[in-house]
Amino acid sequence: MRTYLRHPFWQAAGLLVLAYLVIAFVIPLLPGSAMVPSSVVLQYMATVLVGILIWVSDEEARWTQFKEPLHEVLVQPRLKMVRNGLLAAVTLVVGCLTYSQVRASVAAPPNLRSIHPAPPPQITFRGKTITLVGLDNPLRRSGDMAAHLAVGRRVYYQNCVPCHGDHLDGQGHFAAGLNPLPANFQDNGTIAQLTESFVFWRVAKGGPGLPREGTPWNSAMPAWEDFLTEDEIWSVVLFLYDQTGWKPRTWEVSAEAAK
């Protein structure tokens, strides 16, 4: 047992198994975590494998020692059974992998949907052209903030809450039925990363206004420009940031603008 533990080949094999266990079973157990998608497991395992191969081969002595068991299995007459078993196992594994690749399944294939596609430089809002580049929330500069927030709160609870939820976490009553799921505003990957003009664009144009990268399954978000006024949308944007505590991404002050 101890000789196995000291041997680079078995150490490498052990590390690989350990890494798999950690990635596939320990990470999902951590608080607030969830299962790791198989594409990511594959990616992590490939990285770990490369790292292990580097470790076993970066020193001549270790490399020679590492190759020993492999070499022996391939040539030693006494290991004929192991050799045959290994060849059979490799064939079987390749066969199974091929089968699982080509097998028709009922699940929809994994899709790549760009959550934050590039916004257009300008949009048409009820016939009025709004330039999104460099645009800040106009309500931040005018009027009473508390009043704006009150309007935003009303708009949110009248329109958004069924999907985006009471906690603004995308866990509304209807959320389970939607694909893609409603955005979770509490997450640091959504509105926290975006400018207010981007959020305005998404609210105003909704799922139908998503560019092609937003496909294959377009979001069910309605295009609110048909139902809300410009100021109502800006107030609800204000409300989202105020309620979650995130700060919107701000525009970089360009040299020309400063002049």
């Binding site: 990470i27 951590l30 607030g32 975590s33 969830a34 299962m35 790791v36 998608p37 198989s38 594409s39 990511v40 699940a107 929809a108 294939p109 994994p110 899709n111 790549l112 949907r113 760009s114 959550i115 995308g170 866990q171 694909n179 893609p180 799921l181 955005a183 979770n184 997450d187 990957g189």
Partner: peptide, 22 residues
């Protein structure tokens, strides 16, 4: 950041951002 995942995994993660690894 946005992970490739099938519908079962998406449901488990609550979106295409992993709650921890995201």
């Amino acid at each position: 950041h946005t992970m490739i995942a099938d519908s079962r995994e998406l449901a488990a993660m609550g979106g295409s951002h992993h709650p921890l690894l995201g």
